[in-house]
Computed example of a mutant assay.
Amino acid sequence: MPDLPAVRRWLAAWAVHLRMGDGLVLAAALVFSVGSALVLWQGGRPDKAIIKAGGQVFAEVDLSAPRIVEVPGPLGTTRIEVQPGRARVASDPGPRQYCVRQGWLASAGAVAICAPNQVSLALSGRRADYDSLNY
């Protein structure tokens, strides 16, 4: 733990060099940074879920109404649950359950892949959080 009197002395030494304009610039930079993060990292809202089985589109499901989609695969049936604005892989016969552990997908561009059963769930919308260039 740092020595509290030493920290106070260090702050006092820096405070001598700062002016009111410096404080305003720091405050403006903080407001700009927080505002940019809130605006730019919102991500897109998904419009539909694209479900693929064996590399082919199995179904395109609108995310406006709740439903359950059963998708056949080589190992068995993968169950995908859709709620307004989000979707998830509820159950999968694969051994490690990675796609089930991803939980609810709620932003455009989000993907859950059940590789052993060759089933994938992807959310699409007008604007995705990321694209292939981010990988």
Rank of each mutant, 00 (worst) to 15 (best):
Pro2Asp: 09
Leu4Glu: 07
Pro5Gln: 06
Pro5Asp: 14
Ala6Thr: 13
Arg8Asn: 10
Leu11Tyr: 05
Ala12Glu: 03
Ala13Met: 07
Leu18Gly: 02
Met20Phe: 11
Met20Pro: 02
Gly23Tyr: 05
Ala27Lys: 04
Ala28Gln: 04
Ala28Glu: 00
Leu30Ala: 12
Ser33Tyr: 04
Leu38Thr: 03
Leu38Tyr: 07
Gln42Tyr: 05
Gly43His: 08
Arg45Gln: 09
Arg45Val: 07
Arg45Pro: 03
Arg45Glu: 13
Pro46Arg: 04
Lys48His: 12
Ala49Trp: 11
Ile50Gly: 01
Ile50Arg: 15
Ile51Pro: 08
Ile51Asp: 04
Lys52Gly: 05
Gly55Met: 12
Gln56Ile: 09
Gln56Ala: 12
Val61Glu: 05
Ser64Arg: 15
Ser64Ala: 13
Arg67Leu: 06
Ile68Lys: 11
Val69Asn: 08
Glu70Trp: 00
Glu70Gly: 01
Gly73Trp: 07
Gly76Thr: 10
Gly76Trp: 15
Gly76Met: 14
Thr77Tyr: 11
Thr77Leu: 09
Arg79Gly: 04
Arg79Lys: 14
Ile80Gly: 13
Glu81Gly: 13
Gln83Tyr: 04
Pro84Gln: 12
Ser91Ala: 15
Asp92Phe: 03
Asp92Leu: 10
Gly94Gln: 07
Gly94Ile: 15
Pro95Thr: 10
Tyr98Ser: 03
Tyr98Leu: 10
Tyr98Ala: 14
Arg101Pro: 00
Arg101Ile: 03
Gly103Ile: 05
Ala106Gln: 00
Ala106Lys: 07
Val111Ala: 02
Ala115Glu: 13
Asn117Met: 06
Asn117Val: 03
Asn117His: 00
Leu123His: 12
Arg127His: 08
Ala128Val: 00
Ala128Lys: 05
Tyr130Thr: 03
Ser132Cys: 06
Leu133Glu: 11
Asn134Thr: 10
